[in-house]
Every structure is written in C-alpha cells, then in structure tokens.
Nucleic acid binder design. Structure first.
Length: 504
RNA sequence: GACCCCAUCGUCUAGUGGUUAGGACACUAGGUUUUCAUCCUAGAAACCGGGGUUCGACUCCCCGUGGGGUCGCCA
C-alpha cells in the first residue's frame, strides 16, 4: 500500500489539509504501507518555499510522518513537481504523437467570450474544440510563428465508472467533460496531468483526498487510460464546513494549524479533533491518541457527509488534554507564553553524556529581578491546570505572580457590599502569626478564621467575607484559583504585603 | 444553470427491518464550593417531506426538498 499527501505550497497547512494528511497517515500506519509527501508546485507563481516549510514543520509537529518526500528522499523522487519536468515531457509528447492531446492556440479572450455566450444561453460552459482537428501543417506553421498555445486533452465520449472506497459506485458521463487543458507546454503539465503521471510513476495504490476533488477523478482516469496506466483506488473524504455550512475558510476564523499551535492548542487535541471530522470508531469512545487511532482507524467507518468545524468541541478537548498532562510537561509548554519572566541561562552545561546543552534552571521575573525556579513555576501552573482551555490563557491568568504592583478597583474587595476593612485587619493579624507557611496549615488557620468571622458578623458559615477580599488582595481579579492555594505559593512576605496594600 | 455528492438532537455522531433511537460537545437545573473552573446528578433536545416494498420502516427503493462540492492556461 502506497499513499501520498500532495499539498500545493501556495498556502500554509490548514485544517482541511491536515485532516487529509492525518487520514492518509492513519491508513498507511495501520496497513504498514508507505506515505509519500509530494509537493505540487507546478504553479511557479503562487508556490513559495516558505509555505512548503510551514507544511513540513506543522505536519511533523502534529506527529504525522512520511516515508518518502523532498526532505528525506526516496527511490521514486524527485518529490517536487517542479523537478520532474523530464518525466512529464515524455508522457506529454506521447499523448500528442498518439493524437490523444492537441495544441490549442485559442486566446484567453476568445475562450472567455465563448464562455460568456454559453452562460447567456444557459448551456454548460465547454471548450468548443476549435483546435481539435487542426491540420498538422497549420499546427507547424503556428508553432513556427511562436503563437502562444496550451495542450488540451482529447476527451473521448464514454462513461467513467469507479468504485470509491468511501462512497461506492460513482459514474460520470464524459460528454459533460470538455477538452480540458493538461499542459502549458511540453514540459509544463497542469494539475490533472501532473498528478496522474506522478501517482503512476510513484506507484501510488490508494488515493485518499477531499471530496472537492471528486469532479477531477474522471479526468484523471481518462488520462490513465490514454497513457496505459493502471487506476489506483480512490476514496473521497467529506469536506469540512464552517458553522454556517459553507466551505471552511478564513472568514470563519483561524484555519492555519500554526495559528492553533500558537494559540495553545495541544497536538493531541488537534489530532483527536481532526480524526473525528469524518471518522468515528462506531462505539462510544471519543478520546483517542494517535496510536489508538492507528489501531482503530478504518475506511469503512469514515463518514460520507460533510463535517462542521466545531470550535467548542475543540476547546473542550483541549481542556481535557491539558488536565491530563503531567505538570512538568505542562509547565514546559506554558513557559513560552509567560512574557513577564525570562530564562536565566546557566554558565555551566550538562555533562557531555547528557547532551552537553546549556542548562536553564532558573527564571527571572522581569519587573522585580527576582529569581524563581522551575519547580516554583510548576506550582503556579498547577493552580491553573484545570482551568486552562488553551495555553495562551496562562499569561493573563497568572500575571499577578509576576507583577510588582497589582492594579484593581478597591471596590472589588467588597464581598456582598460589605466594607472589607475589618476582614483585612483580621487577615493581616492572622497571617502574621502563622509560622508554618504550608498549604495544609494555612488552610486550617484561614478556614477557622473565616468561619469565626462569618459567625461574628452574623453570616452563618459564609466564608466569603474573608476569602473574597483575600483573593482580590492577592490577585486583583474577580476569579482565580483558590486564595489559600495562591497564598501558599506566593509566600508569607508577598501575601502580607498585598493584604496590607489592599487596606489603603 | 449543469454535473457530482450528501441528509438522525443546535453540533459531531451510534444505529445496517422490530431499540424507551444511545453517547459526546454546547445548553438548562441541582449538588460540591470563597470566585472561576473541575467534578457529580438530573433535564430539555433528532430520524427533511411524499410515495412505495414489507406483518413491520430511521434503516431498503423511487420522487421531491434541502445542504454542500465542482465547473480556470489554480491545485
């Protein structure tokens, strides 16, 4: 089994692309076949090396790997279409010499006018075949005069049938397909031709691609027949639609994988999410790692109907995977988002046996110059692990740990419209007396204090009269992790300082 | 418009002739709770319409309807 993923480097890797790549990857891995990455850059004007780089980088980030490709080579290379002109030339010449393709000298203006006319009388827009039966003498003459031309395929009248791996029997009547353009010149094929030749030359056995390419399939089969190629097996995946049911595009928000990555979506989330856009295992399991997907994936279970991209589900999954992460790993992932701190590069290095890289073992709070350790950061991140939906949120959520001065409206300190003065006084006094600054002890003392206080002011067991002002004093926010947990991480000195400031 | 594809809660979907039509996200209510989350419990929520076939259709067939895709010297 040999599959391919053939992006065109005219844009970055987006949701749709990545889903197709993933499905190809899953099938190949399951069936122990080979996946080929082929770069379809026949459109030299729109193709850019930076897009190819983006595609490669992000596929790898997702954990999608291939066996042959421009970056790693392979025995059926080159893997960029722009480097395969010699191969195409041979086939294009053959098509012309066998009279299965022909030169067309019609100008774009002429073609356009033709199309306009056909539209105006409600006919399907098709090429008139004007150049189809031009004499060899005339062709030679025009070629000699350097008249611009393209090469068209001589589409025969017949019915094309094929069995789609996902959709079953599909029929097309080629009467509705005109003599489509297959090359700009003898060495510059257009999409349909290049794909067909490459799939054959690269011995591709299965083609898994988006449903949007379904109308191209009969054209490619026609070319295969003209060139004497075998026909691979086709499977057309449902398209991905935006919430308004139109094709997913930029106006629906972010579509680039890179954007999701930067926003703090985990690759586990994206893989799990993408897999369920068009596939499901048939039972109630919904959480899947890439390994489990490889094990359970099958074409029979892939969906025929279009899937709608649902951001809420993506967020839910991301929160789920964040909660499951090991705290050390989660902290590593969050550090790049923490813009109020910077790493302190140690002068010593790991011993050669451990890689010899420079060692970062501390971080510096930019505003205060204070040095903090990785384990300390773990504690901070740990406070927010179950509240985080995307990594980027960590910046705002934990900013109060790294700010010298908190700025907030003092009115926020009131719990149920009560002046917080006495509560803060009691807090300060109590905190001052606490010797052992550990969560358990703090919890015990502050719980007692808050219950006593509530009783004293006739508010039953409502601990908010102490806890709310404490939260606001420490964080300046109206929602946060638990104030006692925060105090424990913040330390006695800073906690007291912030409580005192709240009183002013 | 032509061709092709598709059709179960708002969304992703399970279901392959007989089910109280199941799950998840989102939503609502309640519980836990100092806030926000998490967690737990409960709830509301669907077979596009019409004809067949059949003892019996969400399931099979046909016709509508709706949605989507494609109609480039782009891929």
């Amino acid at each position: 089994m040999r599959l391919r993923f053939p992006p065109s480097p005219t844009g970055v890797l987006h949701i749709g692309n990545a889903r197709t790549a993933l499905f190809n990857f899953l099938l190949v891995q399951k069936e122990k076949g080979n996946l080929i990455l082929r770069i379809e850059d026949t459109d030299q004007e729109r193709s850019k090396a930076s897009f190819e780089q983006d595609i490669v980088t992000n596929l790898k980030w997702l954990g999608i790997e291939w066996h042959e490709g421009p970056d790693i080579g392979g025995q059926y290379g080159p893997y960029r279409q722009s480097e395969r002109e010699e191969i195409y030339k041979k086939h294009i010449k053959k098509l012309i010499s066998e009279n299965k393709a022909y030169y067309c000298f019609c100008s774009p203006e002429e073609l356009n006018a033709e199309k306009q006319y056909q539209m105006s009388i409600g006919k399907p827009t098709q090429y008139s075949q004007k150049c189809r039966s031009m004499s060899q003498v005339e062709i030679n003459q025009k070629l000699k005069e350097n008249q611009p031309f393209i090469i068209r395929f001589k589409t025969p009248d017949k019915e094309i049938k094929f069995s789609d791996l996902i959709r079953g029997e599909i029929k097309f009547d080629t009467k509705l397909i005109d003599d489509f353009a297959i090359a700009k010149s003898v060495e510059k094929p257009l999409y349909n031709l290049a794909v067909t030749i490459d799939d054959f030359e690269m011995k591709i056995s299965h083609i898994l691609r988006g449903e949007d390419l379904l109308p191209n399939t009969p054209k490619q089969i026609l070319i295969q027949e003209a060139l004497g190629f075998t026909t691979p097996l086709y499977g057309h995946l449902p398209v991905i639609l935006g919430p308004d049911k139109s094709k997913l595009s930029k106006r629906h928000g972010a579509t680039a994988i890179e954007e999701y990555k930067n926003d703090g979506y985990l690759k586990e989330t994206i893989i799990n999410f993408l897999a369920f856009l068009g596939w499901n295992p048939g039972d109630e399991k919904e959480i899947y790692s890439i390994k489990e997907l490889i094990k359970d994936f099958s074409l029979e279970k892939t969906q025929k109907s279009a899937a709608i991209f649902n951001l809420e589900r993506l967020n839910y999954l991301n929160g789920f995977y964040i909660r499951k992460k090991d705290i050390s790993e989660l902290t590593q992932l969050c550090i790049p988002y923490l813009d109020l701190i910077e790493p302190v590069i140690a002068t010593e290095q790991y011993p050669p046996a451990y890689g010899g890289q420079q060692l970062i073992h501390n971080y510096k709070i930019k505003e205060t110059g204070e040095t903090i350790s990785f384990p300390y950061l773990e504690k901070i991140i740990g406070l927010y692990q179950e509240r985080l939906k995307k990594l980027s949120e960590i910046t705002e959520l934990t900013s109060y740990f790294f700010q010298k001065e908190l700025s907030y409206d003092k009115a926020l300190l009131k719990w149920k419209e009560r002046d917080p003065k006495d509560a803060l006084d009691k807090l300060e006094k109590e905190l001052n007396n606490i010797e052992e600054w550990k969560f358990d002890n703090l919890n015990k003392k502050l719980s007692e204090l808050s219950l006593d206080f509530a009783q004293e002011i006739g508010e039953g067991k409502n601990r908010g009269y102490i806890m709310w002002p404490l939260r606001v004093a420490l964080t300046g926010k109206k929602s946060s992790a638990g104030p006692i947990e925060i105090a424990a991480v913040l330390g006695k000195e800073k906690t007291l300082e912030r409580v005192k400031k709240a009183k002013k």
